[in-house]
Amino acid sequence: MDWTALWLSLRLAAWTVALLLPVAILMGRFLAYRRFRGKGLVEALVMLPLVLPPTVFGFYLLVVFGANSPLGQFWRATFGHQLVFSFEGLVVASVIFNLPFAIQPAQRGFEAIPVEVREAARCCGLSPLESLRKVELPLAWPGLMTAMVLTFAHTLGEFGIVLMVGGSIPGETRTIAISIYDRVQAFDDRSAGIMAAVLLAISLFTITVTYWLSARVGRRLS
């Protein structure tokens, strides 16, 4: 059992969730409430990571983050090490790759709030920020919770992108999914089996929580 890899995966998942939550709230709310030209395109872009093969996505991230790219050079000049094959690089890749898992459920959560309820909040004297805090977030939270749970679980399991952008540096970029692959390559079936079981348990738990939450959304607003 590679505890370092599990701990790294959990840290990566936690960072991804923490960074994506505000993005999910802002983007989900925006896409739920507004109608504008090109909205379909924006939604398609958000969903793109879902259909793009991880290797293709990882390749483009390598190009954008790489040592020869403007972003890569800026990162090296500012932080003294390169973005690819580092934990920070993994976090950035993970945030981008998880956009659909975070924004989509958040958007559904905000969409479930009747327009008149939002308008009533404003007419009760609540400023947009107060309305968000007192009315919209409490009503959209099952959607946001789903977003966080899915993002967390998905980050733990991601393989292709991590391998492309991070490689397999122990303690830096070797996540539990990569570690399982390594163990299988090394014919260490016992370790691979334990870690696979741990990931299976976590995934099962998160999916159960997600279904339970979406059932709650339906009940609350019916």
Partner: peptide, 28 residues
């Protein structure tokens, strides 16, 4: 902005805040 107008409105669907009690709705 709507929240700066001292207006009371009763919507056709009432648009009560479903997560708050009757008292909470009025206090809001």
């Amino acid at each position: 902005a709507p929240h700066r107008r001292r207006v009371g409105i009763v919507f056709q669907s009432y648009a009560l805040f479903p997560h708050m009690t009757a008292l909470g709705n009025v206090v809001a």
